[in-house]
Design a protein around this nucleic acid. Structure first.
Lengths: 62, 62
DNA sequence: TGTTTATGTCAAAAGTTTTTTACATTTAGC
DNA sequence: GCTAAATGTAAAAAACTTTTGACATAAACA
């Protein structure tokens, strides 16, 4: 699953750690997802999208 | 996680079984998700949305 | 260079989803 | 009311994912 987390994250000036904290997950989780090591749960996908001020469909592409 | 699978599914005239087959999962999986017993993987969420001709953000709400 | 901050990666644990088999209940049409 | 189709549910196992702590590497920059 491709994603545009990096793009949106940088756009907001967030570090992985900052984004992680806002999503209440570990930095490694954000890193792993950002680098396509695995897909987030649907819940976390929504959380990430919300924190990045966008939609799930916008951040992730199958 | 709330969802509008039933609504969209009926709109297309699909049974749970039909939707399941189109998504390559078991009928019980669709049934369980439709009835909020658990959330699908992000992959499956996208598949369901695609089969129902809509978006993940449209079908699911945190 | 040395220090700090940011990112990358592992292995294992923890947790979740999915499948299967089976049966119960409901709904729709005849 | 009967029948067939559709839906609901359960338990257990299999498959898969996510998370975490720990450590490694890289980047920034004074």
């Amino acid at each position: 699953m491709k994603n545009k987390i990096l793009e949106h994250r940088k756009g907001k000036g967030f570090t992985q750690d900052a984004l992680a904290k806002k999503c209440n997950v570990s930095r490694q989780t954000i890193n792993a997802i950002e680098n396509d090591r695995y897909d987030p749960t649907l819940q976390l996908a929504f959380k990430i999208a919300r924190v990045l001020n966008t939609t799930v469909d916008n951040v992730f592409k199958p």
